[in-house]
């Protein structure tokens, strides 16, 4: 089910609203041409996964959707709103939140402060699923460390905090960049359950992953990235069976 040239982005039913549509996105770091026309979409309430080798531009894609790396061409549309020209700090209004690669917690803030400064009311009629207490209920370890500075947290605790911080925004569209990097299998299982919970709440997710088992376990749709483009997309089961694609683009 590889993408034919000129086929519609998602290759799925057109009637379901899109939480995210990225259209022909181009981005550079200085002169280096990193996103070379990325096109993909995530249906509302679904989980899209981006796979690809190191350095193909997955993080840059997330940064561009967030508005941190400016795009020189193309469009980012979130829940029907074209945010391409919006500054990063304005994009949360669409319900966008980011769990960045490498956690990027604030060492000098306490655990509780991370959650408090991230707190946002949900948009429109949606239910407020997340609060500081709700994050503590999901990650009891964080409650124990509520008053500690994040600099003192372990790697796993930092990842829980990075996820909890994003959840406090009560997001409609969550970007997660390699959340399982360096985590123990136990915490990876916890993340799998959390993603199922979020999906139940109607949150749409775009997930970048290297951990194939985890990614395919939660994905509704898989996008394979190579040299700044989406070169293949399919259902997760189809990818498992497709040895040629796995070898060529994922080095497996």
């Amino acid at each position: 089910m590889s993408l034919a040239p000129g086929a519609p982005a998602a290759g799925v039913e057109g009637c379901v609203p899109e939480a995210l549509r990225v259209d022909d996105l181009h981005a550079y770091y200085g002169e280096s041409f990193v996103l070379q026309g990325v096109t993909l979409s995530v249906k509302a309430g679904s989980i899209g996964v981006v796979l690809g080798r190191n350095g193909v531009g997955k993080t840059t894609l997330m940064r561009s959707i967030m508005g941190l790396t400016p795009s020189r061409r193309g469009m980012v549309v979130i829940s029907g709103r074209d945010v391409s020209t919006w500054a990063a700090h304005q994009r949360w209004v669409t319900g966008l939140a980011l769990v960045p690669q490498g956690r990027r917690i604030f060492p000098s803030l306490t655990v509780r402060e991370h959650l408090e400064i991230g707190l946002r009311a949900p948009r429109g009629q949606r239910e407020a699923h997340w609060s500081v207490e709700a994050v503590f209920d999901t990650f009891p370890r964080l409650r124990e460390r509520a008053g500690n500075r994040a600099a003192t947290l372990s790697g796993g605790e930092r990842q829980m905090l990075a996820v909890g911080r994003a959840l406090c925004a009560n997001p409609d569209l969550l970007l997660m960049d390699e959340p399982t990097e360096g985590l123990s299998p136990f915490i990876v299982d916890e993340l799998t359950r959390l993603i199922a919970t979020l999906k139940g709440q109607g949150v749409s997710i775009l997930l970048v992953e290297q951990n194939l088992d985890f990614a395919l376990g939660v994905a509704d749709w898989v996008h394979v990235m190579e040299k700044g483009r989406i070169v293949h997309q399919c259902a997760p089961l189809a990818l498992l069976a497709d040895e040629a694609v796995k070898r060529r683009y994922l080095g497996l």
Binding site: M66, G67, H89, A97, P100, R104, F106, P107, I117, G118
Partner: peptide, 10 residues
């Protein structure tokens, strides 16, 4: 600590 992350948080 991390200005970019603060921006990403809106």
């Amino acid at each position: 600590d991390d200005e970019e992350m603060v921006r990403a948080m809106g």
